[in-house]
Design a protein around this nucleic acid. Sequence first.
DNA 1: TTATTTAATTGTAACCATTACATACTTGTA
DNA 2: TACAAGTATGTAATGGTTACAATTAAATAA
Lengths: 139, 139
Amino acid sequence: MDINDIEHFLRLHSIRPSHHRIRVYQYLVENRNHPSVDIIYQELIRDIPTLSKTTLYNTLELFLEKGVAILITIDENERRYDADTSFHGHFRCNTCGQIFDIRLHTVPRELESMEGFEINESHIYFKGLCPKCLERGNS
Amino acid sequence: MDINDIEHFLRLHSIRPSHHRIRVYQYLVENRNHPSVDIIYQELIRDIPTLSKTTLYNTLELFLEKGVAILITIDENERRYDADTSFHGHFRCNTCGQIFDIRLHTVPRELESMEGFEINESHIYFKGLCPKCLERGNS
DNA sequence: TTATTTAATTGTAACCATTACATACTTGTA
DNA sequence: TACAAGTATGTAATGGTTACAATTAAATAA
C-alpha cells in the first residue's frame, strides 16, 4: 500500500492524513504483528525522531473511533492494535508472546440469549502454546 | 456454598484453604459480577480490615494457576475474575460497564488453521450496549 | 503443648502503560 | 500573509499491578 493510497484511505474515513498518521497506519498495514504502542514507537522513532508517545496514543485512539483499526486485549498488560478490521480470531502463545491470526469459519451468532443487546464488537481469543514453543519445550 | 464446602473444594485443587483464600473464593462464587480486584477489595475490607491488596493479587493469581477461576480481559483497564470456569462468553456494555455472561451454543472449533497449536484457553467477548442503556439512550 | 519449619500475609515502594493538559507547531483557507 | 482550526509535543499525573523485605499464621514433629 503506497503513501497515496493510504492518504486516500484515511480521507475516506474522515481522518486527516497528517504525516504521522500516515506513517502509523502504514506501519499497521505492513506489519501484521498486532503491535503494542511501544513496538510501534520503537520502530517509528528511528525514522521520526520527534515522534511522541502521546501522539501515538491519540492517533491510535482516532483509528479505533473511525473504525480503521481494532483494539486487541488478548494481552493482560498492554493494548495491541490490528489494521485488519474484518472478523477474525487471535491466538496468543503464552511462552513467546506472539499473536497469530485465526481464520474463523463459524461466526458466533449467540443471539438467542442476547435479545435486546446491541453488539458492536466481537472478539475471539485463544491462548496456549504455538508450534515452535511446543517443539522447543518437548526437546 | 458453605465454608466447609469451599475449604474442601480448595483442598481438592491443592490450594491451602487459609481464611483469606476462603473469603475470596466465597466472594467469587456468591457474586457472579466478574469483579475487579478493587471491587473485591472494597467489599472484603469491610469484614477483614487487615486485608491487603497484595494478598488479593497473590490469591487470585493462585486461583488462576490452579484453575478454579478464570481471568477476563474484556475491560481494557483492569482485570476481572470469574469463578465459573466452564466455557461461556462475555458481553460488556460500553456505557454502564457491566459484564454479562453469554451462554454459547456453538463452541468454536477452529482447528483447521490451528494444527500444531496447543489451546489452553478460549475466550469470546462481545461489546456494545446492554438493554437498559439502549433504552435509556433512546428515550 | 511447645518448638521449629514452612507458608501466607502485610505494607511500602517501584514499575509501567496510559491519560491529562498546557504549549508549540502545522496546515488549510481566505 | 494572516488567521483559525487542527495536530503534535513534553511533562507530569494517574492508577493498576508487581517486587520485596519484614511480619504473622499455620503445619508438623518432638
